[in-house]
Write a protein that binds this DNA or RNA. Structure first.
Lengths: 230, 230
DNA sequence: GACGTTCAGTGAACGCCGTTCACTTTGTAC
DNA sequence: GTACAAAGTGAACGGCGTTCACTGAACGTC
């Protein structure tokens, strides 16, 4: 029985030379690289130990604490580095859209694709919420908050130009986002579920959300009160 | 800084007397009770250690291994005990419905409520998927599979009586379920998100899924091919 | 070129964890 | 009374995150 974390260092310590004076930050990047590689090899946060990361870099475990106060911060940094362009990627996807509703459709696809391409990071960032440290952050420092703000804006746009029913854009955005989040989460975690082809699932979720947004001649089935929020 | 797991045994060992011959199973239930209590106090699987469970029961840590081969099995048993009536609760919710579409609405609400009332267990069961052990289970042994099968049947019913657009019931059910799952997951994990009142969110998600299901005079915006699946 | 400082990093330890195993205690059947 | 099996113990193993006193090299200064 093999354990990926126990695999001897593929980049052994012999190769690493101590940083020169003033180059201490070099280690920080090396650590992030090693942690990221280890994470995607092992697939879960628990499988990535500080000792294993250190060994792969070719450094003692204590050295990691020169740059990260604890393991949580290290994993956090890894994930944030991976999600640096999350919001902009999603927003860019909307760029080539024909109309605001189409923009939302493209954003939805981009969100799901991004999540499925970075499963370990998505899991850690969005599912691991250590209530003590994460959940107590101010809302605007939460992981996908900038991406969410864009979604709210886009939903508002769609309503402004009459492409979507008038409703509370915040509430609608919560619905859209949780639906996207649900599909990413479920597909990541429950690998053995007999998922239909991913494109079909994306279509199903995104389209049904959009149908909900823009219901045509039938008119709204229910009136929602419009509210303003941050 | 206090650690709930380190709290001294509120049911100290003095009170427990060794089981009589043939009563070994007694310990099993006591362990499950203690683990469940600890889990809901601490809120995460990691916070529940075998030693802490044992201490609370008033027994050595090794004794737990007489009834559970490892920690995973213990947590699994705790969660399954909590979710024993998951499927039936959800199905019961549909019982009093006026029509098949209303039945789906009530099931959705029941699903979300059940999840929000058992957050730790929902997290472990649905989010912790240890790929090595869980994900490789045969599909019909996955946690909520019986509940999902009911959903597929109900969606099929709605289509049969003409209450919903004709489509692939399996695919539609995946969409409905992932949406419900998304909202439960997100609300459990991201506590500090400025959630709208839970009833509004439930309405938003469930209704938009149902609007997608039953689109009236406008007719289907897109045709889906109908497929059959186990 | 010796000196002190400071940066970059080490090695051993602490207390926790899941798990194992040789062992004891206890009740019962013969 | 004795043998046996069930019920449970205690100490240990290796791994974990983290801390802390310490070291060796590089640099500015005299």
């Amino acid at each position: 029985m093999q354990n990926a974390a126990a695999t001897p260092n593929p980049n052994p310590s012999a190769s690493r030379t101590r940083s020169r004076r003033g180059e201490g930050e070099r280690l920080r990047d090396e650590v992030l690289d090693a942690a990221e590689a280890l994470l995607s090899e092992v697939g879960s946060e628990d499988g990535v130990s500080m000792r294993a990361v250190a060994q792969r870099v070719g450094v003692s475990a204590a050295a990691l604490y020169l740059h990260f106060p604890d393991k949580f911060s290290l994993m956090d940094a890894v994930c944030h580095r991976g999600f640096e362009h999350f919001a902009s990627t999603i927003d860019a996807a909307a760029g080539s859209a024909a109309d605001p509703l189409d923009a939302l459709r493209r954003m939805g696809r981009a969100y799901i694709e991004f999540g499925l391409e970075n499963p370990e990071k998505y899991k850690i960032l969005m599912l691991q919420g250590d209530p003590e440290r994460y959940a107590s952050l101010p809302p605007d420092e939460m992981p996908g908050m900038d991406a969410f703000a864009m979604l709210v804006r886009r939903v508002g746009d769609a309503m402004d130009v009459g492409a979507a029913r008038v409703a509370d854009p915040f509430l609608v955005s919560v619905g859209v986002w949780t639906a996207l989040h649900g599909i990413v989460t479920a597909m990541i975690v429950m690998e053995s579920f007999p998922w239909p082809p991913v494109d079909q699932v994306i279509d199903q979720v995104v389209e049904s959300q959009l149908r909900g947004l823009a219901d045509g001649p039938g008119g709204p089935r229910r009136t929602k009160k419009v509210a303003n929020r941050g």
